[in-house]
Design a protein around this nucleic acid. Sequence first.
DNA 1: ATGGCTACGTTGCGTAGA
Length: 274
Amino acid sequence: MTETPNNGKALPVRVATWNVNSIKQRVDIVLGWLADCRPDLVALQEIKCVDDAFPRAAFEDAGYNVAVHGQKTFNGVAILSKLPFDETIVRLPGDDADEQARFLEVLVSAGGGAVRFASLYLPNGNPPDTEKYRYKLSWFDRLIAHARARLDLEEPFILAGDYNVIPTAADARDPAQWVGDALYLPQTHARFQELAGLGLTDAIRAASDDPGLYTFWDYQAGAWQKNNGIRIDHLMLSPEAADRLTACGIDKHVRALDKPSDHVPVWADLRLES
DNA sequence: ATGGCTACGTTGCGTAGA
């Protein structure tokens, strides 16, 4: 993480992403985490409800503005923000026939500058020999095209979400278990590397190349107890955001709570300037 | 030991997740 000159006042902004696996099942756990972590911008995935069923008031009472792009039963993304929304954009461009609620982007003003923040839920894609994997790759290509357009704006921009991508063997406790899986196939890795190659920085890997940094542990087979995890939730930062990265982390402890999500939050601190 | 768990909605048990 590089130090940049700071001519004005430092304005710390904490951003985070969390696949909550049903927001209605997770309200109290999310509120408790918000009180501890105190993030400014939070990308949520797998809210699993329509917009009107999102427990909006609970988060507004905690001091957050709420943007929701949901659907019945599956998928669904949302953004919580202490800052008001200047723009809200739903759906990833590139396929008007795509009905799945997997992308939401907002623009907020922080200290006289703009911060663009997106919550994304990239398709799982299993099993790989089906239309599900073709949809994953096609969605990924749309994301790459959108990221390219956004990077041209030269703004602090964070693509936050559940990518359903294990980037490297260091991101899984047992990489052999994932060979041939949609989260770990060469075509999946190629897309993730293409995204990074546009100039987006994986916040966690900018800070550490340690193994054992995971964001998901399956409910099954005692995966949590055995620490059989994978790192699939990522904060991808534009150069203007990556240059201002001061700290980041994974809030692993919430996986041990009663009735947890199978994913945990990933957060990053950006030192913006006013 | 290739199943184990959790959530959804059609409240049964099939579908989906990763």
